[in-house]
Simulated scan of single mutants.
Amino acid sequence: MNVALKWQSLPGSALDAEQLGHLASSCLKLEVETYPKPGLVSHVDNGAHGDMDAELLCRSAETLKPFFSDLAAAGAEGAGMNRLRAIGVAAERAMLAATCGVNTHRGAIFGLGLLCAAAGYRGALGIRKSLGDLVSRRWDKDILSGPISLRSHGAVASRRYGAGGARAEAADGFPSVYDIALPALHAARKLVPHDEEAVRIQTCMTLIADVTDTNLLHRGGPEGLRFAQASASAFLAAGGIGSAGWRGRAIDIHRAFVARNLSPGGSADLLAMALFVDRLER
């Protein structure tokens, strides 16, 4: 599997809704094509997941492509949250049909979908605000007041442990993307300018170290979250991808997550969102 982001010569504002949907889907596939990511599915193994593999995730990403385009088109037309939510619900139904009921990308439909809508809105108006700022300014109240999914493991963990979760992240303009992931991604490119997979690994490790990932809380509780954050922090403190033997240490962390049934799915979604935003706001 070799995923390439297209339209590198085009500014983000020049991408139409179909291209934005393609880009969002490609970013989800790039997240899959990253190894080792602690506990997560990749093109090498299934991580801590017994119900999904890389092929299933890529099928899901492909299924979601037209819905991301629809969200971008709706954003360009100034749609409110009710319309965006309806598209998201249709996307989730299509995802579950394509994966035989496996929740591969529910979190990405929400977060990446809002960023697609913001990208469409920004392109239609020709404005220069960040996508995260637009999401927060246009839809923050509706994001926080909308219906809560009772099926989402992340939502359950948010309620149980008092974590902010995906809704708070989106309503605040995706601070984990802008304040954590993007700076890590740009710094990693300076360390290894010719290895984008390593850049994605470093970014993912930084997210795991710094984000209260509700998927980790769901699987391992506070103890599992602390273990995950400490493991990723130790990797970064040792030099991350800039140190000799880093890949072996990353694989060891991955195996430790698998042994504990830990999977930072929220960080995986944020990585894909960061790749999307980076492409459009570079």
Results as ranks from 00 to 15, higher is better:
Gly146Asp: 10
His153Ala: 08
Pro66Tyr: 10
Ala73Glu: 02
Leu131Arg: 03
Asn215Leu: 13
Ala4Glu: 14
Ser158Arg: 05
Gly123Glu: 07
Leu71Lys: 09
Ser9Cys: 09
Gly101Phe: 11
Gly12Val: 13
Asn46Gln: 14
Trp7Met: 03
Leu40Pro: 05
Arg226Cys: 11
Ala184Glu: 09
Cys116Tyr: 07
Asp142Cys: 12
Val44Asp: 02
Asp179His: 13
Ile87Asp: 03
Ile251Ser: 03
Glu223Gly: 08
His43Asp: 08
Glu77Leu: 12
Arg128Leu: 03
Asn103Asp: 06
Pro147Ala: 01
Asp252Phe: 01
Ala48Phe: 14
Ser26Gln: 15
Leu96Cys: 13
Lys65Cys: 15
Thr214His: 12
Val44Cys: 09
Gln202Asn: 12
Leu20Asn: 07
Gly146Pro: 07
Ser233Asn: 05
Arg160Ser: 01
Arg200Gly: 13
Arg219Trp: 12
Ala198Glu: 04
Gly162Cys: 08
Pro38Glu: 05
Gly107His: 05
Pro183Val: 11
Ala184Pro: 14
Leu144Ala: 04
Gly162Phe: 12
Tyr121Asn: 00
Arg226Asn: 14
Lys6Asp: 12
Ala74Lys: 06
Leu144Pro: 01
Phe110Lys: 11
Thr63His: 01
Ala124Thr: 02
Phe110Val: 06
Gly265Leu: 15
Ala76Cys: 00
Asp195Tyr: 14
Glu281Met: 09
Leu207His: 09
His153Cys: 00
Arg83Asp: 00
Ala188Leu: 11
Gly21Trp: 03
Pro175Ser: 01
Ala119Thr: 02
Thr99Ile: 14
Cys116Asp: 02
Gly39Gln: 08
Gly21Asn: 07
Ser9Met: 15
Ala94Glu: 06
Glu55Trp: 03
Arg128Trp: 07
Ile201Lys: 02
Gly47Asp: 13
Gly165Gln: 12
Ala234Met: 03
Leu150Pro: 07
Ala237Cys: 12
Pro147Asp: 01
Asp172Lys: 00
Phe276Lys: 02
Arg260Met: 13
Gly78Asp: 01
Gly47Ala: 13
Leu40Cys: 11
Gln8Arg: 14
Arg189Cys: 14
Pro66Ser: 09
Ile201Ser: 02
Leu236Trp: 04
Ile251Val: 15
Val277Arg: 06
His105Leu: 12
Ala170His: 12
His254Asn: 13
Ser176Cys: 07
Phe257Met: 07
Pro11Ala: 06
His254Phe: 10
Leu182Val: 13
Leu134Arg: 01
Ser42Gln: 08
Ala230Val: 02
Leu125Ile: 01
Leu275Gln: 04
Asp269Arg: 07
Ala24Ser: 05
Leu207Ser: 03
Ala228Pro: 05
Met273Tyr: 10
Leu15Met: 10
Leu150Met: 06
Ser231Phe: 04
His22Gly: 15
Pro264Glu: 09
Leu64His: 12
Lys29Gly: 00
Gly240Tyr: 10
Thr34Trp: 12
Asp16Arg: 01
Val3Thr: 14
Ile87Tyr: 01
Leu191Thr: 15
Thr212Arg: 02
Tyr161Arg: 00
Thr206Ile: 13
Ala14His: 12
Ala163Leu: 13
Asn46Phe: 07
Pro11Met: 08
Ala17Gln: 07
Gln19Arg: 02
Ala187Met: 15
Leu270Ala: 03
Arg247Met: 12
Arg279Tyr: 11
